[in-house]
Computed example of a mutant assay.
Amino acid sequence: MRNGLDLTVDAGSLTARLVDVPSESRQEKPLADLVEGALRAVPHLTVDRDGDAVVARTALGRAERVVLAGHLDTVPVADNLPSRLDADGVLWGCGTSDMKAGVAVQLRLAATLPAPNRDLTFVFYDAEEIAAEFNGLRRLVERHPDWLAGDFAVLMEPTGGRVDGGCQGTLRVRVTTTGRRAHSARSWLGENAIHKAAPILARLAAYQPRRVEIDGLVYPEGLNAVRIEGGHAGNVIPDSCAVTVNYRFSPDQSEAEALDRVREVFEGFAVELTDSAPGALPGLSHPAAAAFVEAIGTPPAAKEAWTDVARFSALGIPAVNYGPGDPALAHTREEHVAVAAVLEAEEKLRRWLTA
């Protein structure tokens, strides 16, 4: 299929085809068109589309429904397209790990499992790599929650082939100081707001992050300055300064509790919440999750990041992260994935869905 997606090729070759269709966030339409066209040609699937999100479902009347989800977008290309397969069976290119290898596995399963042991929903969505307001899964939750209904979900984010349970929550705040503007030649007439930010940085340096164990998984937290803004000109004492702080918190806390903790750390300073997203508990005690972990055959770990499993959790659907590729390579110029890892992920999911 020269101008389309051939879902009969192996998952490694399909990954390369997907990678070679650029799909930076908010520019996913060409890839979404290819995905939709390929899935509409599969007779056992019902296909729906909203914007650049495509959802395909079986309707076999099985006792359980599993959702397999993955995003189509990538970060901006970093001189790493087209894809390149080396002699060691490693595929290089933007999106290989995060997460077109996982999307290729989804597509292969969608096309080649006409009678799985569970009903399946395949979700391919847009704009995961940018601000939450654009996230295609968030849009589907708001507009078409019935499309996402299920008993268990697997987000095909790269995990190195292990099951990562739940995810951290994340919030960002601006911690601000104020001063009095003056000419720097007469600095004693002003109050330097940047200097007043020193205690903010000192508290961050002294902060001892928690490590929280939930269902046997350990979630490390982090509280870090990620941006400092202040100053007007090279000869002006600044009258304002803002430190943006990102708190990655364990899913044992709600967003409100996490914000209260941050406010405690910066007591005495003005703290403004700028964005927030909840974490997700691992939920590995759910029978479907336990069966999945057993099928994958490796010890589960905590997800040390925020992912869209939180959106499924908010819908009451237990969800885990699982996919080929090394998450440490995501967004890097050297992004790559071993084709053997892609094939292994497909085979393990296939066994689980046909046993």
Rank of each mutant, 00 (worst) to 15 (best):
G283P: 11
P238W: 08
N224I: 09
P220M: 07
S250A: 15
R172A: 12
P287H: 13
A197W: 05
L284K: 07
G179I: 04
G166C: 05
G279A: 09
T178N: 06
N246S: 15
E213C: 10
A233N: 09
Y207S: 12
L281Q: 15
D215I: 05
C241M: 05
R180V: 14
A270D: 13
E257L: 06
Y219G: 09
V293P: 13
N246Q: 15
P199S: 11
S250Q: 08
F266M: 04
P238E: 09
T274W: 00
V293L: 10
A185G: 15
G231M: 02
Y247S: 05
I200E: 04
Q168S: 05
S254R: 04
V243C: 09
L201I: 10
N246L: 00
E229A: 13
C241E: 03
E213F: 05
T176V: 00
T178D: 08
A242E: 10
E221P: 14
T177S: 13
P220L: 07
G166T: 08
V175N: 06
K196G: 01
F269T: 00
H286R: 12
A233M: 07
Q208Y: 01
E255C: 09
A270N: 12
L273H: 05
P251G: 08
A270L: 04
A182R: 04
A197L: 11
H232A: 14
A270V: 12
A256F: 05
L284E: 10
A289M: 03
Q208P: 04
L204E: 00
S184Y: 08
H183N: 13
G169E: 03
R263C: 02
G231I: 00
R181Q: 15
A225S: 14
G190S: 06
V163W: 06
R261V: 09
G169P: 06
I237S: 01
G190V: 07
Q208C: 03
A198L: 15
P199G: 11
R227C: 05
V173W: 01
S240W: 08
Q253D: 08
A225L: 08
A198C: 06
V236G: 06
G279C: 06
D252Y: 08
V262C: 03
V271Y: 09
T244R: 02
D164I: 00
A205W: 01
R261M: 10
E191M: 02
G222H: 06
I194T: 12
R162F: 07
H195C: 09
I194R: 00
S240H: 13
R210A: 15
P282K: 10
S250T: 14
G283H: 12
L273V: 12
R186V: 12
P209E: 04
D215F: 02
S285I: 09
W188A: 14
L189Y: 08
D239T: 04
A290Q: 14
T176N: 02
